[in-house]
Deep mutational scan, measured.
Amino acid sequence: KKVLATKVLGTVKWFNVRNGYGFINRNDTKEDVFVHQTAIKKNNPRKYLRSVGDGETVEFDVVEGEKGAEAANVTGPDGVPVEGSR
């Protein structure tokens, strides 16, 4: 997949743990970017399912997906594990 941007910060708009996807709002362009649970690189080690929490700040790369921009290599800021869904 073509990389459109790297090390982008954003805020998780919503994430559905059961369906394994959601959207992140980019801090720079204010665009919403699709995020799938497989894109989460560093999950909260205390959680079994990969997820990001609503309102959580995350860092990610933006790649060209089949339906437009999507997140890849999702971590917390500066590469720490994500907090995950509460």
Rank of each mutant, 00 (worst) to 15 (best):
K67R: 14
E56T: 11
K13S: 06
V74N: 04
E70Y: 14
V35G: 02
V8A: 03
L4M: 06
E31F: 00
A5E: 10
Y48Q: 13
G53A: 14
W14Q: 07
F34Q: 05
F60S: 06
I40G: 02
S85P: 13
W14H: 06
N43M: 12
S51K: 10
V35F: 15
I40C: 05
N27P: 02
V52H: 07
G79M: 10
I24R: 01
R18Y: 08
N27L: 09
R50K: 12
T57G: 03
P45Q: 13
N19F: 15
V74K: 04
A71E: 01
L9N: 08
G76A: 15
E66C: 12
G55R: 06
V58W: 05
G10R: 00
K67W: 07
K42T: 15
T75D: 06
S85M: 12
I40A: 02
A5T: 06
T11Y: 06
T11N: 04
N27I: 08
T6M: 07
L49C: 11
L9Y: 07
T11A: 05
I24G: 02
N73T: 01
D32W: 00
G68W: 04
E31D: 08
V62I: 13
D61A: 02
G68C: 05
F23A: 05
F23W: 10
V3L: 08
K41E: 09
G55C: 06
G79P: 12
V8M: 03
R86S: 13
G55F: 06
T38Y: 05
Y48P: 15
G79H: 11
K2W: 00
D54P: 15
R86I: 10
K13C: 05
K1A: 03
A69G: 05
V82F: 12
K67G: 08
G20D: 04
V63P: 02
K41M: 12
P81Y: 11
G53L: 15
F15I: 00
G76F: 15
H36K: 07
F23R: 03
G79K: 11
V33P: 02
H36M: 03
V58C: 05
N73L: 01
A69I: 15
K42C: 15
N43H: 13
V82I: 12
S85C: 13
F60M: 07
I40L: 10
T29W: 00
A72D: 08
E31P: 00
F60N: 02
R26P: 02
I24S: 02
T29V: 01
G68A: 03
D54K: 15
L4F: 05
E83N: 12
E59K: 09
A71Q: 00
G79S: 11
G84K: 13
R26C: 03
V33W: 00
T75H: 13
N16D: 11
A69H: 09
T6E: 12
F23C: 07
T75E: 06
N73K: 02
P77K: 13
E56H: 08
G10D: 04
E66G: 07
K1E: 05
T29Y: 00
R18Q: 10
T6N: 08
G10F: 00
V80P: 11
N25T: 15
G76E: 15
T11W: 08
N25P: 00
R50P: 11
R26G: 00
V58L: 07
V58R: 01
N16T: 03
G68Q: 03
H36Q: 06
V33N: 01
